[in-house]
Design a protein around this nucleic acid. Structure first.
Lengths: 146, 146
DNA sequence: CAGCATCCAAGTTGATACTG
DNA sequence: CAGTATCAACTTGGATGCTG
């Protein structure tokens, strides 16, 4: 494709042309780390990734594992993840077709950190539920007492 | 609001009535950990949270820090985060008004893990950019050669 | 099985304007 | 300053039907 001169992607506010040190910063609006971050943490990407930590999986197995995801969203998530180099798609020619998805090393690193986060949140959900209740009660009282 | 009987929120597939052990599971469709997870990892929530790790911050300071966020989205993110008990909103009566946002202990724990993830991703972005390039090239070739 | 294409409803977002 | 209200534009997601 045209306009593909080595690595100097046009990247907003967080990277330069390769002569100086490159710094990526999710806080910067145009930084390519933002989309990647979104693929990883978005509604489905993270769940797909973590599901793959249990071992390689096929399309429909993933679909079952990630409760509530639609075909379309799963395909979309897998594409994004594959493009970012987090997941590898492996086709086994056969009938019926067999396609497996596997984490790359980078993907594995992401999953480690991500599942740490998930476990931490799951482990604190009781407190979250309490906080929500308090918040809602306070809001209701406020709406009343005004 | 009506229908608020103690803690047995109607929570899909991952929690019961308090007599047995409660297990939260982000993979389950109706689990309340999912929304919370989304607030933390969503487009803005995570950035707001991590921004607050630098110290307490006021509304407009946050707005400047999180490049590209709109007023509306910031307010929305802060509400969700506050409701989940990740952030505290502190009002200082004065003119002009002064409102500060601060991480709770739980919020701090989340941020630790989240920023680990962010740093890992930022640190691997060079590889991601390469992967994307390879992916796009392969796709282009495929679209051609077919 | 794996997955793309299309359509459409519903939700999300951002700009703008306004309030306390 | 710290928000809320409103509206139009855009995006998302899911259901359905079809292909290899």
């Amino acid at each position: 494709m045209a306009g593909n001169m080595s690595k100097q992607a046009p990247v907003g506010d967080c990277v330069d042309d390769g002569l100086e040190e490159v710094v990526f910063d999710v806080f910067a609006r145009g930084c390519p780390s933002r989309p990647t971050m979104e693929h990883v943490t978005g509604r489905w990407g993270g769940l797909v990734l973590v599901a793959l930590a249990d071992g390689d999986m096929r399309f429909n197995a993933l679909r079952r594992r990630v409760d509530g995801i639609s075909e379309k969203m799963l395909a979309q998530a897998l594409h994004a993840l594959e493009r970012d180099g987090l997941v590898v798609r492996e086709v086994r020619q056969a009938i019926p077709p067999k396609v497996e998805y596997r984490l790359t090393e980078f993907g594995g690193g992401v999953v480690e950190r991500l599942s740490g986060l998930i476990e931490f949140i799951e482990g604190n959900m009781a407190g979250v539920l309490d906080a929500q209740e308090r918040y809602d009660t306070a809001k209701a009282a406020e709406a009343d007492g005004v």
